[in-house]
Design a protein around this nucleic acid. Sequence first.
DNA 1: CCGCGCATTGACTTTTACGTCAAGGTCAAT
DNA 2: ATTGACCTTGACGTAAAAGTCAATGCGCGG
Lengths: 128, 128
Amino acid sequence: MDKLYTITELTREFGISTRTLRFYEDEGLVNPERRGRTRLFRPSDRRIIQNILRGRRIGFSIAEIREIILAYKDPPGESGQLTLMMKRVSEKRDELKQKRKDIEDTITELDLIEEQCLTRLAEIGVGT
Amino acid sequence: MDKLYTITELTREFGISTRTLRFYEDEGLVNPERRGRTRLFRPSDRRIIQNILRGRRIGFSIAEIREIILAYKDPPGESGQLTLMMKRVSEKRDELKQKRKDIEDTITELDLIEEQCLTRLAEIGVGT
DNA sequence: CCGCGCATTGACTTTTACGTCAAGGTCAAT
DNA sequence: ATTGACCTTGACGTAAAAGTCAATGCGCGG
């Protein structure tokens, strides 16, 4: 049935503000239909928003997110452009792998902090 | 031999600016010695800087990074504080796990884009 | 002694990603 | 017809994390 979403429906679903969605439109990330001046978001817009939010969570800038979205929508037709894009994709992937390692190391560190807390708690618990 | 590092040595090693290191000092994240007014960073400072940069890469704010550094240095002595901290640690860990999943999904997506590029390239290559 | 490179502080500026008004249009229900 | 919910555009404000600029100091090779 291809439901259309109003702006506030989506802000509620994703916990973001209307300002944020309008901003994403200004940035050319989403292109909702209009009934009069009112925005109506398609399922495809909704999916893009999910992508944006994911990108945001992992620290991509709007420009980077836009680049990925565009790359996905219409990969360039020219050979040189394609090769260039594959280089950029490869770089991004390396960056993400580094980030994943950073996260894993930090999780380990958090585990350590937690352990220290437990130890201290036990000491205190025994002492009193 | 406990080498001491000048500010520019470290900026070169880590690819950051002197302004950044001074900013981190203002924020209380590092405490270099002083010979006169000149900063001399100890190996411990250097390690903290590595931690800061790692935190930065995974999107932690300076405030969050400071919190983790402090938690690691001196875990609080009081029972309530300890329990509180463990809750915060647990939250951060969940956040990081979500982030790791986001990263893995995005890597998968990048793989897909790359594949599309390769397909297009093959098509072009054959056609010409 | 002069200039060079490296160091300092302090103040002002910038960028990103929105938040926050202001001022008003539309429509359904009361 | 007024209230209230929801929508709009446009302009201005803000916080974080530095960048940039100005003015200055210190030690050293030539």
